[in-house]
Design a protein around this nucleic acid. Structure first.
Lengths: 230, 230
DNA sequence: TCATGTGAAGGAATTCACAGCG
DNA sequence: CGCTGTGAATTCCTTCACATGA
């Protein structure tokens, strides 16, 4: 009656990427965060050993999927036994590059930007919000989550000064492309975009987009489909 | 130098779904919102006719992809000419079920819940926030975005009273499953989940999950990969 | 002639099923 | 014996390339 169900909104990537010896499919990369989350939960519950079945169930994927995914990274389990929670978690942490510090700037301190600035669970360490930017005079100069909001016109300077490596765009569509251009021009190669537009960026820049309105529309499609089936 | 790039975080669905005469692949459904967005932008710019090339570019997909996607819905263009912006937009609007009203409840009025409640661009009509719920006594009773926050314990009653058809879960992981159970028990079949857990729901319930922390981790992976390539 | 619409081809991701190893 | 790890099979998605029709 209750099944894991496919529900994650991932898999936007296209090309595989290098890691250690081989390549990791984009779809696999997109699932590593769930595995890490599940492993941390297990560790918090005091579980030291787990199986592909248990871990998969908690991650919302099939056990075959989980094993296949892990096989792209290496070989971590013990046949006939399972996986050591701690060591697998730490390996995935390394694979995801979470042992190094990532310095974030958030551009657009509206409702969403505020929420993101105050968002506590930045994936349990690894990420630090070092700069906030906005275009509105009402917001510039105020302090949010312990950081003073600066004007977006100085985005290039801020990125250099704070050694920002990732930028979160939380502005409303219009203007997002211009900021993206400036940000890319300053050397940033990873962008998390909440604006509902397809950013045009060079090939070597990775953009992940989150579109709440689009997600709702997809749900609406299913609702309509369900209604039509009656 | 500037390419559309694959950047959308969609495609979580697994099974195809019925529509009109045939079936629409999940991947296609996930892209319909971009097409609609691009069409509305074009309409706002006064463009009445467009091509698969133009529309695809604005949506961040290839023109072949766009044409193939539209072919699952029917045949809307004129060979040798292109697509009528208005009529294609209205068809996709219908296909997505946006001509009917969708009544939302948001559970968890923290930073994110606040932002979502105040989120203006609910995909340009079609969605209406009719209820807000939280567990904290500090929040219950306050008004947010014109709606009074009620206690989450009454979620079943609220869903019935307000005829809620979709629920947004903006609570922090712990407790999300319990609320999901109650929500599903009240007949809701579409859930947008911001909690970083794999919700266990019946097969006929559609869950779309958005995990900001996970998105950042995926970006971190790419950053690490880039660094390793040097 | 030109851009759509679409079979066919190609590639990617998932599932299967079992070999392999503790 | 049990569970991992993985080739093989399958399914799904994307791209190609051209027939089609305004």
């Amino acid at each position: 009656m209750r099944t894991p169900a496919t529900q994650w909104s991932r898999g936007g990537e296209q090309h595989v990427v290098e890691l250690s010896d081989g390549t990791v499919p984009a779809a696999t990369v997109g699932r590593l965060p769930y595995y890490l989350r599940a492993l941390r939960d297990l560790a918090a519950e005091g579980v030291g050993l787990t199986s592909s079945t248990e871990l998969a169930e908690r991650s919302g994927v099939s056990s075959a999927q989980l094993r296949k995914d892990l096989s792209y990274l290496g070989s971590f389990g013990t046949r006939g036994v399972g996986y050591d929670v701690e060591s697998l978690a730490s390996y995935i942490t390394v694979a995801l590059g979470l042992e190094t510090e990532h310095r974030l700037a958030i551009v657009g301190i509206g409702n969403l930007g505020h929420a993101l600035a105050n968002y506590s669970g930045y994936a349990t360490r690894g990420f630090q919000v070092v700069a906030l930017l906005d275009a509105s005079p009402d917001v510039v100069g105020t302090r949010v989550a312990g950081v003073t909001v600066e004007h977006v016109r100085g985005v290039a300077d801020v990125i250099q000064r704070e050694r920002v490596s990732m930028v979160v765009l939380a502005l409303p569509g219009l203007g997002a492309q211009d900021v993206a251009d400036a940000v890319v021009g300053s050397g940033v190669r990873e962008i998390l975009n909440f604006a509902p537009i397809a950013l045009q960026v060079p090939d070597d820049v990775v953009v992940r987009s989150v579109d709440v309105g689009g997600e709702l529309q997809i749900l609406a499609f299913h609702a309509a489909t369900r209604a039509a089936a009656l």
